[in-house]
Design a protein around this nucleic acid. Structure first.
Lengths: 116, 116
DNA sequence: TAAGATAAAAACGGAACCGAAATGAAATTG
DNA sequence: CAATTTCATTTCGGTTCCGTTTTTATCTTA
């Protein structure tokens, strides 16, 4: 069951979602931060800085800084890998799960409102 | 014909779209810039700095700066309003229309790929 | 026409982010 | 066990964005 969406509907949905993200009082995440956050919450662990950098096609410092920012917001958490202490494992938080839930509900609601 | 999308599907779609935006070599727009751009291209003119600021719930300098940035990318253009020369009218460009088209196609393609 | 109102931009200091290069810590290899 | 590799972070200079405040230009109105 693929989702059939005309390009006009897709644009309108993108517009409405972005507008709500700007207008709400949730923290504003960049595309990179959003990609990282959703990768962590949608894909199976473990998630390392190196792995995330490869998946997104960006440098490792970009991941480090994004983790700093999202760590401050309590959306993700770092933990040293005990198997290989060079690695940092990125983990979920309760607050991050709540944010994801907000995002998912908003997206589904906006999609619901798409007009033919 | 509303678009039915589970929250899980919505999240996956959001993830995939953001990931592609990070990975492509198109200019990276912020949520605010995207909202402004799509407002200009989806809603009827005229578009003024003041009107855009109100619609997005942000200050006017935010709009001015976003227009500077998107003007450099040739995505939008300013024109003085001849009726009231205090106003700036924001207008579309060919390059902006091409960017919108790229965005729309990518979104529709990603939506097409959503799995039940 | 002088005074006030309005629209946009500019200026300012502070915060965040960028890519590239250097550093620190831990594991691996010869 | 010394040298090298790997992983993540820090640092650097530069750019961009933020909110607030000030300035400039234009219009309205008393």
């Amino acid at each position: 069951m693929a989702i059939e969406l005309t390009t006009a509907q897709a644009l309108q949905l993108w517009h409405d979602v972005n507008l709500e993200l700007v207008r709400d009082d949730q923290p504003d995440l960049t595309s990179r931060q959003t990609s990282i956050l959703l990768t962590i919450y949608l894909e199976a662990p473990p998630h390392t800085v190196r792995g995330l950098a490869q998946k997104l096609g960006v440098s490792k410092p970009v991941i480090t800084r994004a983790l700093n920012a999202m760590g401050k917001l309590d959306l993700v958490r770092r933990r040293r890998d005990d198997e290989d202490r060079r690695n940092v494992l990125v983990q979920r938080t309760v607050n991050g799960a709540l944010y994801i839930e907000y995002l998912a509900d908003m997206l589904a609601r906006q999609a619901q409102g798409v007009r033919p």
